[in-house]
Amino acid sequence: MFLRATLAAALLAVPALAQDDPLPSWNDGPTKQAIVAFVQAATAEGGPGFIAPDDRIATFDNDGTLWSEQPMYFQGMFVNDRIRAMAADHPEWADEMPYKAVLDGDLAALGAAGEQGLVELVAATHAGMTNEEFEALVKDWIATARHPRFDRPYTDLVFQPMLEVLDYLRDNGFETWIVSGGGIDFMRPWAEQVYGIPPQQVVGSQIAVTYNDQDGPPRFDREPGVFFVDDKAGKPVGILRHIGKRPVIAFGNSDGDFEMLDYVTAGDGPDLGLIVHHTDAAREWAYDRDSHVGQLARALDAAPDEGWLLIDMASDWKVIYPFEKQ
């Protein structure tokens, strides 16, 4: 809230964007201008929007904010592929839910299995191995799996405009963190290569693990239980545990990010909250209130009063994915 007057003043003071455009995949408009104005104000020492370098922290949801999330969360696609790969060793799964739903490709039945079904699938595919073994599975999947609509690796479906924001913020002294409902151990193996975000700056949901120093080198054994869910009210808790201070920028795309946006923009100093609104059915997908993933209703309604900016994918972004530039 504090930043509204500061941004207005900064926008009046900033001339047309420099020729060296830090966000070339963004169309010129209020959203792009607000991001640039915020960063310029944050780095203008002595100005009303100045943010000390140690406090320049930006958090980003992952699914639907940094990469696509349809037709289901990409970690869900990983789970499904793992179930199919493991099915030969588990013939009983052909008749047992929720495994049968995955093997039959029955999304309705899979959805009906609910949270308990998801927990069972995660336990079957994410536990019973060491952390190193799980990391190897993730790296192999990321390198070989293809998205069903685009027939490309899932990491090709990252958002080019958001990659530019990450670089722009880091070039101006901001730390960039992922704060996602996705699994922390699913994201860490590839986040640095794809986003430039190192493993220690990834916050996510966590499976239970135990430290084991018996029968060989010390290792972490992954157990069939959930330790922490980094979604909704869990996101500010994850920020507190991993970062230890309130960020000044938050990017999200769904109601699962509401509490993170609320927390980040509740401080006394400059802050900025932004929501990626999926409005482009031709190049990506168009969805919000009625979506089975990435539902955006509560945060969409609250955005005007809270001062959160809506990033209209169809009108704000010249391209969606890096491969569109080729």
Rank of each mutant, 00 (worst) to 15 (best):
F150H: 12
D28G: 15
Y154Q: 12
R170D: 12
Q206T: 06
R241V: 12
Q295L: 09
P217K: 12
A101V: 07
W26N: 06
A233Q: 14
V79T: 12
D213Y: 14
G47L: 13
D262N: 15
D54R: 14
D305L: 13
A286Q: 08
D63R: 00
P304I: 07
T155E: 10
F159W: 05
P71H: 08
P98E: 13
M129E: 07
N27E: 15
D215A: 08
G196T: 04
G117F: 01
W317V: 11
G181T: 01
F258D: 00
I57W: 12
F78M: 14
D20L: 14
M72W: 04
H277C: 05
K245L: 08
L118D: 09
A94W: 11
L17I: 13
L272A: 09
A281S: 14
W141I: 08
E306W: 01
F258K: 05
A88M: 04
I320C: 05
I83M: 04
P270F: 03
A18F: 06
S68Q: 14
A124S: 14
P161F: 04
V264R: 00
E175Y: 05
A208D: 05
N62I: 06
P15D: 10
W26F: 08
L310S: 02
V165H: 00
V165K: 00
E223H: 04
K235M: 05
I239E: 00
D312A: 00
H90V: 11
D156Y: 11
H292W: 15
G294R: 00
R170G: 04
D106S: 14
I197G: 00
A42D: 06
G29L: 12
N212V: 15
V226Q: 14
M187C: 02
G216D: 09
R246F: 03
N80V: 12
A101C: 15
M77D: 03
N172I: 01
G183A: 10
I275N: 00
V209N: 03
Q193Y: 09
V229I: 09
D288Q: 07
T6I: 15
V202P: 02
V203L: 05
